[in-house]
């Protein structure tokens, strides 16, 4: 038997394309806007969310039969928040430079609605292993969009990728800049992230007409 049954594989691959958390489920937009001005930040955030989603989903799934429905939101939030805070404190104690990089993301992770959304929609009703896969799948789907948006915004906005000047140096006018190319600083502003995501949706739905919305 394969490691993952067909049904389980779908849990991971679906969110990457046809059930993407950002472009289809409309979850986790705020963080996608806030951090995609830089490719590096997009990658760091994606990795952090993969961890939190995977483990958070397992914890909630293990507790699903004992959580009283009336206070489930509080319980879910407290689980995420304490997971994130504990990890943050441990990093601060043993990997200080890394924690400085992640520090800005702590708040964004706690309020990332993807995490809460999947807790509500999946982990509360499914077994731990499947919840784990669902968490990883959705986090990957989220990460893919983040990295695409981050790639274009950093490339077109600052002319760099991961901090390296791939298009030449804008001040001494080398590379592309020598023939009159200019960076579009507008790409670095948050509204452009919305427009880039809009364009991604356009491409995605043109390729798969089944996703097109009725009016």
């Amino acid at each position: 038997m394969a490691l993952l049954s067909k049904k389980d594989t779908k849990l991971i691959t679906d969110p990457l394309t046809d059930n993407n958390p950002i472009t289809i489920q409309v979850l986790g937009i705020c963080s996608a806007l806030a951090i995609t001005a830089e490719l590096k930040a997009s990658i760091v955030m994606s990795i952090a969310v993969i961890f939190v989603m995977g483990f958070g989903n397992v914890v909630i799934s293990l507790m699903r039969n004992v959580i009283p429905s009336k206070i489930r939101i509080i319980v879910q939030l407290i689980v995420v928040a304490s997971l994130v805070i504990i990890v943050d404190q441990v990093l601060k104690a043993f990997a200080y430079p890394l924690s400085k990089t992640l520090g800005a993301f702590v708040g964004l992770i706690i309020t990332n609605c993807i995490i809460m959304g999947r807790f509500e929609a999946f982990a509360l009703a499914n077994k731990p292993w499947r919840s784990f896969l669902d968490g990883i799948g959705n986090a990957l789907g989220y990460g893919v969009i983040l990295i695409i948006v981050g790639f274009f915004r950093e490339l077109l906005g600052a002319g760099t990728l991961l901090g390296y000047q791939v298009l030449g140096d804008p001040i001494t006018k080398t590379g592309l800049y020598a023939i009159g190319y200019e960076n579009n600083g507008f790409m670095l502003l948050s509204p452009m992230a919305l427009i880039v995501v809009g364009l991604i949706i356009w491409v995605q739905r043109s390729r798969n007409p089944a996703l097109v919305e009725e009016n």
């Binding site: 959580i67 319980v75 601060k92 104690a93």
Partner: peptide, 29 residues
């Protein structure tokens, strides 16, 4: 799990567990 008394007990236990966990990490680190 819908009973009020259960909800209250669960909340109390949760607060104690999470609170001491956080306090313990914060203090030891």
């Amino acid at each position: 799990t819908d009973k009020n008394s259960y909800t209250v007990i669960f909340a109390t236990v949760m607060v104690i567990v999470v609170g001491s966990l956080l306090a313990f990490t914060a203090a030891s680190l």
